[in-house]
């Protein structure tokens, strides 16, 4: 397996000056984001008031909706990008980053 690390945690500007948190992560679990971790991830994301999105390539979905997350069909070795925006966005990205490290 190729080494896969979370690549960057940081603030960045998207569009018209909105500041949000971004995290990129390459999935290590050989089954990809299957139902169980998808459910657990959605649960973690839903605990925060800020908006949370998860994207694979061009496709970005609401990370608080399980069908969206499962619908991405993320497999082992694929990179996902998480964005959090709004209240508690920094805590959210930290918690979700830790969750990914430990579970996926």
């Amino acid at each position: 397996m190729e080494p896969s690390e979370e690549e960057a945690i940081g603030r960045f500007r998207k569009g018209t000056g909105v500041i949000m948190q971004e995290l990129k992560y390459v999935i290590k679990d050989k089954e990809g984001i299957h139902a169980r971790p998808a459910g657990a991830f959605v649960k973690e994301a839903a605990a925060f008031p800020c908006s949370v999105t998860i994207a694979k390539g061009e496709k970005e979905v609401d990370a608080k909706r399980i069908f969206g997350v499962m619908g991405l069909g993320v497999k082992c070795g694929e990179e996902i990008t998480i964005h959090t925006d709004g209240e508690q966005e920094e805590e959210a990205i930290a918690v979700l980053g830790k969750f990914l490290e430990e579970n996926l």
């Binding site: 139902a35 169980r36 998808a38 959605v42 609401d62 399980i66 069908f67 969206g68």
Partner: peptide, 14 residues
């Protein structure tokens, strides 16, 4: 855990 996931599916906003 599958039953928790089924519950989440039923609550999925979409």
């Amino acid at each position: 855990a599958i039953f928790e996931i089924h519950q989440m599916m039923l609550d999925d906003q979409d």
